[in-house]
């Protein structure tokens, strides 16, 4: 019995390795001609928040490379397995943009000694939850609901903004250098969609071949 089980496990591992070897990947860079916006002047809780905070609606470097864009592979089911944690630190949500699988619990936590709230809203404005974080060190987990784009607000600090892209499609977020990587994509032709909180870009078709990366770039307006 034990030998049969061991053989079964070995067989499964072997299959997984073959699948990985046959898979390809998609890499690329997100760029834009849009410029970053001016910093936000802080009018409350300056002791904790500072006098000025960057407006992170458009985070772009000198070469026009854009962070915080989400690239998703339409129809390629792949849930985010790690926990999605929203931190409230120095009056910012961090990270600004995150992924979560549908109906997952999203944990919100604060390091600031002031009242924050985390209000999660769907695209049509319905509130999924709104929880108070009155003291530092608190952790509150709430279900994030169905697939879609969820906006995070803090009702005591109106400039605070975060986004949770709730999806079970394979997805990646562009880094500070505008680059993204989608690993372990089976060969085939896919539609890639790009989402950004302030900018738009057209979807693109991409064909992935086994064993090597496929390059694709998006220009957002």
């Amino acid at each position: 019995m034990g030998r049969i089980l061991a053989l079964g496990i070995l067989g499964t591992l072997a299959c997984a390795q073959v699948a990985a070897a046959q898979a390809g990947s998609i890499t690329g860079t997100i760029t834009t001609s849009a410029k970053g916006t001016a910093p936000v002047r802080v009018t409350i809780d300056q002791k904790v928040c500072g006098n000025e905070l960057p407006d992170e609606a458009i985070v772009v470097d000198a070469q026009g490379r854009l962070a915080n864009a989400v690239i998703s592979v339409v129809g390629l089911k792949r849930s985010v397995s790690s926990e999605t944690v929203v931190s409230n630190e120095k009056c910012r949500f961090g990270p600004r943009v995150q992924l979560a699988r549908p109906n997952a619990n999203v944990r919100t936590t604060s390091k600031d000694p002031i009242l924050h709230t985390t209000q999660a809203q769907t695209e049509n404005g319905r509130t999924i939850f709104n929880v108070a974080l009155p003291v530092p060190g608190i952790n509150i987990s709430k279900p994030i609901g169905a697939a879609g784009t969820v906006r995070l607000n803090c009702n005591t600090h109106p400039w605070m903004r975060g986004w949770v892209i709730v999806t079970d499609d394979a997805a990646a977020i562009s880094g500070a250098d505008g680059k993204f990587t989608l690993d372990n994509i089976p060969p085939g032709t896919y539609e890639l969609r790009v989402w950004h909180e302030a900018l738009k870009g057209a979807p693109q078709k991409v064909t992935v071949v086994a064993g090597k990366p496929t390059e694709i770039s998006f220009q957002l307006k």
Binding site: T117, T118, Q119, F129, N130, V131, A132, L133, P134, V135, I138, I140, N155
Partner: peptide, 8 residues
């Protein structure tokens, strides 16, 4: 806009 405090 009124948050819940039951967890805190």
């Amino acid at each position: 806009l009124m948050p819940g405090f039951e967890d805190s």
